Computed example of a mutant assay.
Amino acid sequence: MKANRMEAFSDGVLAIIITIMVLEFKVPEGHDWHSLTGLIPKIMSYIVSFVYVGIYWNNHHHLLHTVRRINGKLMWLNMLLLFCLSLVPFTTAWMGESHFAPTPTALYGIVLLMAAVAYMFLQRAIIGQHPADSVIVSAMGKDLKGKLSPILYLLAIIMAYVMPWVSCFFFVLVAIVWFVPDKRIEQALSMHNEEHGA
């Protein structure tokens, strides 16, 4: 199987995840702007989750461009990532519906942590397909954001039972850090192609 087939399947799953999240919104009974105030927590959680799914879609797209061959290990690690992300709509809705209560907020952090770890496993498996001295390994090995994110998620999970708004701050902070596109893979692929005359 080629990488573009796995990417197409993943794109479809991520599109469904976004669709499910927006379907969680119920039309308010009123007919004025004030009627939307009760939806503000859900809208806020939806926006953050939408950004997260978009970030994963963007980075996943770039990551799969470095795949040399698709095997069973990569396919199952990719499915693990998609499984974790498929839990985002549920936790997003629960956190927004509960107005960021401790347990729903902590569970949201746990799901994000699971997704980050799954992505890290997938990335390492793909890196393992390249020689240790390749430009791709050199570029992708310096993953400061990938190492920092799980720490921030753990802090968010703990803080959910102390000050949930601090947890939300950590969620937004990680999203901001990752919102800026990661150029490492693009630069590595460009250098790789130059070295091989592609």
Rank of each mutant, 00 (worst) to 15 (best):
V48T: 00
E97S: 14
S86N: 01
V177N: 10
E186G: 14
A175G: 11
Y153V: 00
K26F: 11
V162R: 10
A3N: 11
V67E: 06
F170H: 07
A139D: 07
I176M: 10
V174E: 02
V135D: 08
M79F: 11
A198R: 14
A106D: 01
F170R: 00
F100E: 06
L154S: 14
Q129S: 06
E7N: 13
V51Q: 04
P102K: 00
Q123R: 15
I55L: 03
K73E: 13
L23W: 11
K142C: 10
I158D: 09
I18R: 02
I20S: 12
K73F: 13
I127G: 15
E97R: 11
M191N: 11
S10M: 00
H60Y: 08
R68I: 09
G146V: 05
S45W: 08
K26I: 13
V51P: 01
I151F: 13
I18F: 00
L81R: 02
E29S: 15
V172Y: 11
D133Y: 05
S98C: 07
F169N: 11
R68L: 08
M95F: 10
I40E: 10
L74T: 02
F170S: 09
V53W: 00
L144C: 15
S190L: 15
A115L: 01
V51M: 06
T92Q: 13
N193K: 13
D182I: 11
T92F: 12
C84W: 10
D133T: 06
K145R: 12
L23A: 04
A125F: 14
T92A: 09
F170M: 08
V51W: 00
A139S: 09
E195K: 14
V180F: 03
S98M: 02
P131M: 06
A3E: 12
A101F: 05
I55C: 03
V177H: 10
L64I: 01
S134A: 02
K145W: 15
A188Y: 03
W178G: 00
G128P: 03
E7H: 12
K183I: 12
P131S: 09
P89S: 01
M44P: 11
E29V: 15
R5A: 05
E97W: 10
R69K: 15
T92S: 14
N78G: 00
F179H: 01
I185Q: 15
V166C: 02
L148F: 04
M6W: 11
Y119K: 05
H130A: 03
M95N: 04
T105C: 04
L23T: 05
S10P: 01
C168I: 14
P89L: 02
L77E: 07
V67T: 07
G197V: 05
F25Y: 06
Q129I: 08
K26Q: 15
G128W: 12
T91P: 05
E7L: 12
A8N: 04
